[in-house]
Measured scan of single mutants.
Amino acid sequence: HSHMSHTQVIELERKFSHQKYLSAPERAHLAKNLKLTETQVKIWFQNRRYKTKRKQLSSEL
């Protein structure tokens, strides 16, 4: 499990705020920019979407 830097997370968050789903080319581009693997980016987005979904569910209770 590799640790992401604060800067990388900020960039991922910024991208996520604009779009929740990335196409393969977008993911490849973002990964390259942030010096991450595409898998890391993919998993981060999956986890981030899951967290957002959970938060929405709990706020509706």
Score class of each variant (00 low, 15 high):
6 H>M: 13
17 S>D: 08
45 F>K: 00
61 L>M: 15
7 T>N: 10
36 L>I: 05
26 E>F: 01
3 H>T: 07
44 W>G: 00
47 N>F: 10
52 T>Y: 14
10 I>R: 12
59 S>T: 12
9 V>D: 03
41 V>M: 02
31 A>M: 02
29 H>M: 13
55 K>N: 11
21 Y>H: 06
44 W>C: 03
34 L>W: 00
54 R>F: 08
18 H>G: 07
34 L>V: 03
33 N>G: 06
38 E>Q: 06
39 T>H: 12
15 K>D: 00
59 S>Q: 12
51 K>L: 11
48 R>P: 01
51 K>N: 09
8 Q>D: 03
54 R>P: 09
14 R>E: 07
25 P>Q: 15
42 K>L: 11
37 T>A: 03
60 E>V: 04
58 S>I: 08
41 V>F: 03
40 Q>F: 06
44 W>Y: 04
8 Q>R: 04
5 S>D: 06
33 N>S: 14
15 K>E: 05
15 K>P: 00
37 T>W: 02
16 F>N: 01
19 Q>P: 03
51 K>Y: 11
28 A>I: 09
12 L>I: 02
4 M>T: 03
56 Q>Y: 08
47 N>G: 05
41 V>E: 01
17 S>V: 08
61 L>V: 14
9 V>F: 07
46 Q>G: 04
11 E>N: 04
35 K>H: 09
60 E>H: 06
60 E>F: 05
50 Y>V: 10
31 A>E: 01
31 A>Q: 00
47 N>S: 07
57 L>Y: 05
40 Q>V: 05
48 R>M: 10
61 L>A: 14
56 Q>L: 13
16 F>A: 03
38 E>F: 04
50 Y>C: 15
37 T>L: 03
50 Y>S: 14
33 N>C: 15
15 K>A: 15
5 S>F: 04
8 Q>I: 07
41 V>N: 01
8 Q>M: 04
46 Q>F: 07
29 H>P: 00
41 V>T: 01
49 R>N: 04
57 L>E: 11
52 T>C: 15
40 Q>I: 05
53 K>E: 08
3 H>R: 10
28 A>E: 08
19 Q>G: 05
57 L>N: 13
35 K>S: 11
18 H>A: 08
26 E>K: 03
17 S>A: 14
32 K>S: 08
3 H>M: 10
42 K>P: 00
45 F>W: 13
23 S>M: 01
31 A>H: 01
58 S>W: 09
2 S>N: 10
16 F>W: 05
28 A>K: 10
14 R>S: 07
59 S>L: 07
44 W>T: 00
40 Q>T: 04
1 H>G: 09
1 H>Q: 11
19 Q>C: 15
52 T>F: 13
9 V>C: 13
37 T>G: 01
33 N>W: 14
59 S>G: 15
49 R>K: 03
20 K>M: 06
31 A>C: 03
55 K>D: 13
53 K>S: 09
10 I>P: 01
57 L>W: 04
55 K>S: 11
36 L>Q: 00
56 Q>N: 13
57 L>A: 13
12 L>F: 02
49 R>W: 04
1 H>Y: 10
11 E>V: 07
40 Q>G: 02
55 K>A: 12
7 T>Q: 13
20 K>V: 06
56 Q>T: 06
27 R>Q: 07
21 Y>E: 01
49 R>S: 02
49 R>G: 02
22 L>Q: 01
15 K>V: 15
38 E>P: 10
33 N>E: 14
29 H>A: 13
47 N>E: 09
38 E>C: 06
17 S>H: 13
19 Q>H: 08
53 K>L: 09
22 L>E: 00
10 I>A: 10
58 S>A: 11
20 K>L: 03
25 P>Y: 11
12 L>G: 01
57 L>P: 14
55 K>T: 11
6 H>T: 07
59 S>K: 12
36 L>Y: 03
22 L>Y: 01
17 S>P: 03
17 S>Q: 13
3 H>S: 09
3 H>F: 10
20 K>R: 09
57 L>D: 13
22 L>K: 00
6 H>R: 12
13 E>P: 01
9 V>H: 14
61 L>P: 08
46 Q>R: 14
21 Y>M: 03
14 R>K: 12
43 I>E: 11
57 L>I: 12
60 E>Y: 05
32 K>R: 12
18 H>R: 10
36 L>P: 00
14 R>G: 04
15 K>T: 10
44 W>E: 02
10 I>W: 09
9 V>R: 10
45 F>C: 04
23 S>T: 11
61 L>C: 15
51 K>E: 15
41 V>D: 01
26 E>H: 03
27 R>W: 06
61 L>T: 15
21 Y>D: 03
12 L>P: 02
19 Q>E: 04
52 T>H: 14
30 L>P: 01
20 K>G: 05
21 Y>R: 05
28 A>N: 05
35 K>P: 00
14 R>Y: 04
24 A>Y: 14
29 H>L: 14
45 F>Q: 01
57 L>Q: 13
13 E>Y: 05
10 I>Q: 12
41 V>K: 01
23 S>P: 04
49 R>A: 03
14 R>N: 06
11 E>I: 06
43 I>V: 08
35 K>G: 15
33 N>M: 15
5 S>H: 04
7 T>V: 13
28 A>W: 05
34 L>Y: 01
